[in-house]
């Protein structure tokens, strides 16, 4: 059965590492839904947050293959952890001949921010998990989405809570 998994990979911050990871997915025929890369608290490492899909064996294989790369320092299967994840999307929505009040209402519900307004469209920033962004897109589709960009999911495991 197809499942979705969020995986964090801590890698050496070297040139070519992204190509190794991306190449692994294409050469092994793995499905990648999103990939977000950035520096970590330690500038010698980067963190890649990967959302991959596949059946159980494939997902297990993805984690093993990521671990096998020499430049990989750590692979964290987020689905086995308690974690928070966020994604940011910028969406340019058509407002020509549309009811702006309805749109603003939706934006407010989703705690979106309007970053830019033009005569025929505005740009909205939405953050949240994948599901939340998808439902915002779904609701605003009737206005007409002119352009959209998503960062891909980033995730961190939750801090340890004190014992009660």
């Amino acid at each position: 059965m197809e499942k979705k998994k969020t995986i964090s990979v801590i890698v050496e911050n070297h040139p070519g590492v992204l190509a190794r990871i991306a190449g692994l997915f294409s050469s092994r025929n793995f499905n990648i839904e999103s990939l977000a890369v950035g520096e970590t608290e330690d500038p010698s490492t980067s963190r890649m947050t990967i959302v991959a899909t596949g059946d159980e064996l494939v997902l297990e294989q993805i984690i093993k293959q990521l671990n096998k790369l020499i430049d990989t320092l750590k692979v964290i299967d987020m689905s086995k952890e308690d974690y928070v994840e966020r994604e940011l999307a910028l969406i340019k929505i058509n407002i020509e001949n549309k009811n702006l009040t309805d749109l603003m209402h939706i934006i407010n519900i989703f705690k979106g921010k309007v970053l830019d307004t033009g005569s025929d469209s505005l740009i909205v920033e939405i953050t949240g998990n994948d599901e939340r962004i998808n439902s915002f897109i779904h609701l605003t589709q009737t206005f007409g989405i002119k352009e959209m960009v998503r960062t891909g999911v980033v995730a961190l495991t939750r801090s340890k809570k004190q014992k009660e």
């Binding site: 064996l57 297990e60 294989q61 093993k64 293959q65 671990n67 096998k68």
Partner: peptide
């Protein structure tokens, strides 16, 4: 010795 060889083809 290579974990990726295990359960790659057959569980």
């Amino acid at each position: 010795i290579d974990p990726t060889s295990i359960s790659k083809i057959i569980k």
